[in-house]
Design a protein around this nucleic acid. Sequence first.
DNA 1: TCAAATCATGTAGTTTTACTAACCAACGTG
DNA 2: CACGTTGGTTAGTAAAACTACATGATTTGA
Lengths: 289, 289
Amino acid sequence: MNEGKTRSSLSAYIIRNLDEMRPSEQKVGEIVISEPEKVMRMSIAALSDKAGVSEPTVLRFCRQLGLGGFTDLKLALATDVATGMPFVDADVSMIDTPQIVGDKMLGTAMKQLNLVKSQLNYDQVVAAAEVIGSARRIDICGIAQSNFVAAEVQHRLARMGYCAIAMADPHMQLQAAASMEAGDAALIMSFAGQSKETVDVARLARRVGAKVIVISRSTSALAQEADILINVDSDEQTFLYSSSSTRIAHLMVIDILTTILAINVGEPMIERLRRSRLATNEYWIPTNE
Amino acid sequence: MNEGKTRSSLSAYIIRNLDEMRPSEQKVGEIVISEPEKVMRMSIAALSDKAGVSEPTVLRFCRQLGLGGFTDLKLALATDVATGMPFVDADVSMIDTPQIVGDKMLGTAMKQLNLVKSQLNYDQVVAAAEVIGSARRIDICGIAQSNFVAAEVQHRLARMGYCAIAMADPHMQLQAAASMEAGDAALIMSFAGQSKETVDVARLARRVGAKVIVISRSTSALAQEADILINVDSDEQTFLYSSSSTRIAHLMVIDILTTILAINVGEPMIERLRRSRLATNEYWIPTNE
DNA sequence: TCAAATCATGTAGTTTTACTAACCAACGTG
DNA sequence: CACGTTGGTTAGTAAAACTACATGATTTGA
């Protein structure tokens, strides 16, 4: 019964399928999910002993999970323990305890970061950094949750000395976009990439000759309007209708983008950022750690 | 030479110490860091063969790293590969390629999420959710980067129907704090917890009888002023003087906190959030996916 | 400079572990 | 009662991990 679907967490899979397993394999499964960090250092003999079953049963248990053998189980467990996230992919539900809610949300965020790592197109990021670095002015547009990210980008670029403006109001965004010209850059962000206003802003900015950098889903309407597309795809997370993990992905992309930009500029930028930090120094309570 | 310090990433450790290793162990190390996902499925024989050294050399290599044996190496590699992050802890440097910059930053973020998972005190989070849920008014204060987080909290709580106000200006924060009374809540955030203004706001709010919820480092000056302390400790990240990973930790804490709050309230809150989502529905471009 | 000591690494052997195969005994079902 | 399912027993094998020892190289010091 080795179904082809990929599995993000072995523990989660075992938990889900425990009921359908054979009695002795359930015994093994219970130990595996309750103390994976121990099991991954056990021998078959030790585990079979602890579960009160025979060695071949442990092996049958592994095969049942679609694994090659016990060694694979150990590696898979190490992976599970490493991500620390038994609930990767799991949706939060109303009956979860606070701890479970937290673990599930952190697991989803973790998965999202991994997704960014694997799918981020650095050519596009570098291209975006170059456009921003040489732009006369940078308009940063996002709506709703993306607006918060936009505000952060503005602050970050301002600290780096760039002329960057984030606008919350979509009408202002449109007016600003209309006033752009060649040599300007528009950085447009949207989690889903399907807000009408945002797409309109991108289209307008592009028509007047500005370079349009988009951070969004690659299949979105907004992505169509991009000169430079930094794609951040993600699974929808529907509980409470907020996409917290996508926002974290966008923040990371912004961080990486601005860091690359700073490195490209080099020492003068580092010096500038140092000054920026020193500016607030006297408002800090000294620590004696 | 097994030093006591904990190590968050084996690969990173190997890379750092490769120069000081014995020649044949260097050969082993190079293979381990270049293709860990293969090595973790190899036998000692296969690895020693590939490195052109003897089997005991491989074993000595493991011991040199402070590991119990080859099996431990495999598990450690599985951990490394799972987090997907060879550069956990590594500082970004000026000579890194874009890809490396991204990997390092994502690795740091990942580590931070794991830290949140292991150290988050859910009793305090639940207590905070209760205070916020029953507060007459919630003032949200943060300065500099925390101000962006504060703005998000305001939006989130507003959408949930609470009377929440985030203020950027520290003088306004002080004035608002002075006007609070018993039954009000102040949610005060700071990455380092050492800004004078923020500490003053907390102290003032507490003096006038408001419940003070603090999200910050547990050893910070701000933490001293908390009625409810949600501690988010982290290593400093100094490159470019921005603490992006700490900000992500704070965002996650906020997400978890508000989600727990919503679950506590139950169905009416879910309904309210559904309405909140529907409000912008007509501004979305329908997808035919 | 040359012997002693230490270090680096390979050879050979032992023990443990994972895995296979074949068989058999309960157990429940039609 | 035949029959499939489940799972234990036994025994054996191959390979993997690990150990002890030996040897050649390198450094050290009188």
